[in-house]
């Protein structure tokens, strides 16, 4: 909100609220989306753009019904979901303990930091073709790419969470005779949970990206394969249905993790 006009905006806001049930910003957001759909629907009809390339909301909606009803949608979705879940689960199993080790041992950090940071920064998706050579064009190479995409944000954030543990809490625990294991399980792990979850949240997007890129690159099944099929046959409506489904999946999962994260972070609001 612009500072200079905040006072007048607040007053306008009150007048606005008296007339409409929704807040001003929500109304504008809705109108803006509505406008987008109207333009998208009307522009091809008026010949402003070629509808073959843009499709239309109504066509996409119709295509969605077709896709869900037939098209083996659930078969493809299940394959992609399996790749995602397997890669993610494997990465969690490896990355949280590794991040904990790096967060608690200075020497482990010094040794592993350079290769880790390089891989965290670098696009791990470039390893996809190598994975395909190693593991073939089936699910294994996608699982590997998801794994590689997901593991580094979780390691880095787990490490950061452990390192940022409040030394005063550790000292208080020690004063009551806490063992190293006690300190790890009762102070470091709960203390870094918000950070770990943040890593997981960032990883969700990378994981979804990994599945889609992996399947676009080479595959015979999966939502990425369907995207490629409909892209090359110019079925833009069906292409968009799949793209939207993937987006909704990513959005929902990210929001769920964010919700959990803010729950967990609530304890430490000071």
């Amino acid at each position: 909100m612009a500072m200079a006009t905040s006072k007048s905006t607040a007053m306008e806001g009150r007048a606005w609220n008296a007339r409409f049930p929704l807040s001003r910003s929500t109304t504008i957001s809705c109108l803006s989306v509505l406008l987008f759909f109207v333009v998208w629907q009307v522009a091809p009809e008026l010949g402003l753009v070629n509808g073959r390339f843009t499709s239309q909301p109504t066509k996409v909606a119709a295509a969605a019904l077709e896709v869900f009803a037939s098209d083996d949608f659930f078969y493809h979705a299940r394959i992609s979901l399996t790749e995602f879940v397997l890669g993610f689960a494997l990465a969690l199993v490896v990355s949280v303990p590794l991040g904990a080790l790096l967060g608690t041992s200075k020497h482990a950090r010094y040794i592993l930091d350079p290769p880790l940071m390089a891989l965290y920064i670098a696009p791990t998706l470039v390893l996809l073709p190598i994975m395909v050579i190693w593991l073939g064009i089936g699910m294994a190479s996608k699982v590997a790419v998801v794994f590689l995409g997901v593991i580094f944000p979780i390691i880095v954030n787990t490490m950061a969470g452990m390192r940022e543990a409040d030394p005063r809490l550790i000292r208080a625990a020690r004063s009551f005779g806490a063992s190293r294991l006690d300190i790890f399980t009762r102070i470091l792990v709960p203390g870094s949970l918000p950070s770990i979850l943040m890593g997981v949240r960032l990883a969700v997007g990378r994981g979804v990206l990994g599945v889609v890129v992996g399947e676009l690159y080479v595959s015979q099944v999966g939502v990425g394969h369907q995207l490629m099929t409909y892209g090359s046959s110019m079925r833009i409506d069906r292409l968009l249905v799949y793209a939207l489904v993937i987006s909704v999946f990513g959005y929902t999962l990210t929001s769920l993790v964010r919700l959990l994260e803010s729950r967990v972070r609530n304890w430490r609001t000071e």
Binding site: V213, M228, Y230, S232
Partner: peptide, 20 residues
């Protein structure tokens, strides 16, 4: 407010799905 829905969508959608 006008941009927000699109940014949210952009945030959660894997751009690469729109590659084709």
């Amino acid at each position: 407010a006008a941009l927000e829905p699109f940014i949210w969508f952009k945030y959660s959608a894997p751009t690469i799905a729109f590659y084709p």
